[in-house]
Write a protein that binds this DNA or RNA. Structure first.
Lengths: 252, 252
DNA sequence: CTCAATTTGTTCGTATGTATG
DNA sequence: ACATACATACGAACAAATTGA
């Protein structure tokens, strides 16, 4: 039996994943969890062969992958060592209040996308508010510098949009909205869920198809409980980070 | 070019997934998202070929996978139809304050996992607190009923753990901690990031490898700023939902 | 210094999986 | 379905570097 049914995963898809990728993902996780720290010598090829029940060459393939990622370095005769901790630096801290949501997006560059079939009206959930008579629908890629970091699909109540169509085309809608006089915002909430990139999202954000993404849905209503803004932003998952203070009784 | 570098994603690992698995996961998501409902005819092979830029056989392989899962059924000359819904109703609303974090997890069932190589100490970030002298490391699958919904890796300061080892083995550590007398909690924060399931996570949570996941890291410190609890919970991404009130000036 | 044990590096042949056109 | 090309995986043998007795 060369590559048979030795390991039968519960999910058909799982068992089809190449062995060396499976091994690599376990090793990566051990580094991330701190089981092997930077400078540590990891288990020998022989040990890993035994543990995962794979051939030597397969273990080497996995290790090679992590060497390319810069996490490991092998030395003939000595062993394989951890060279880099597994940390993500370029976090996009997702806001949990209005001010810190607006502040960082002010200078974002916005690249409008052609709108194919625009939905007539946004899909509104229970208790999110009442629909305005009509909406303008915009799609855009939001960029920081030249890096795309979010794909936006935005509905703006037409009446609001009409007040400053040019600004809405050049700046993130939320920033424009926040600066607008005479638009009393009664309620704004955001909900975050997790999904996977479809073909179009993948292309715009330059990530792999079915790579993890974060979907942020933001709904803003005015004093009459009419939804004046509704956006769905898709971020590459590996960039999103959200901090939540649960308790803070410390002296500062 | 047979299987070359046509698509260079930001995530090396994802793009190395066999194409037919990538295609399958996109189709699966469309069913889950309700883009194709039960009874609907999905896009033709020709359309899918074009969309994903793969050969016909590759699309067929993806569809075959979903036929085995019972989601699709192909009929020669008619098309391929959705036969089973894949709706997600079981949202897990992630807590944004201490009380609502503790409340729902009280009755969770906990299935301890064997700890192979435990990290000597938890990896602590800048400003998260000081390390206790030693920690107990636990791994578990948290369940609601028989459904696994999170994979937990928990460090508890040994001194704290020693006070109620049996309770820590049977209940979620945070719940035990919250009920403990004489443990003054000065600071608790949680951070959420998004990742993809590795082999082990996929197995424990019964999801596909590299399916989106949410990683919640929770750090609890005592009055002397010593980290007494640190956990990393991995949730299936499609279950996590987080609501954030940005502004609320409504009358209730 | 030498020797043996340990550990990674390299190569071969073979079989099966993935993907194209 | 077929021919083709490349990727994955096995097992085994041997080479080269390092370490410590």
């Amino acid at each position: 039996m060369v590559n048979g049914t030795r390991k039968v995963g519960r999910q058909a898809a799982s068992s089809r994943l190449p062995r060396y990728l499976q091994v690599a993902s376990v090793l990566r996780r051990r580094i991330q969890d701190g089981i092997w720290l930077v400078g540590d010598k990891i288990a020998t090829l022989e040990q890993l062969e035994g543990e995962f029940d794979v051939a030597r060459v397969t273990v080497r393939q996995a290790i090679e992958l992590l060497q390319v990622e810069g996490l490991l370095k092998s030395h003939q005769g000595r062993g394989t060592f951890v060279t880099k901790p597994l940390k993500n630096e370029r976090w996009l801290h997702l806001a949990t209040d209005w001010a810190s949501l607006i502040a960082p997006i002010r200078e974002n560059v916005l690249e409008l996308l052609p709108v194919g079939d625009a939905p007539a009206a946004p899909l509104i959930g229970e208790g999110e508010g009442k629909l305005a008579p009509s909406y303008t629908y915009l799609r855009s890629v939001q960029k920081r510098g030249s890096e795309p970091y979010a794909l936006a699909r935005v509905h703006i109540a037409r009446e609001i949009y009409a007040r400053a169509p040019k600004r809405f085309a050049a700046h993130p809608a939320l920033a424009v909205l926040a600066e607008m006089k005479g638009v009393p915002i009664a309620h704004a909430h955001q909900s975050l869920s997790i999904s996977a990139a479809d073909v179009e999202t993948a292309r715009h954000l330059d990530i792999a198809i079915s790579a993890p993404t974060a979907e942020a849905r933001c709904v803003v209503t005015d004093a009459r409980d009419v939804v004046i803004y509704l956006s769905e932003l898709t971020y590459p998952g590996d960039v999103v980070r959200l901090n939540i203070e649960l308790i803070d009784r410390r002296r500062r």
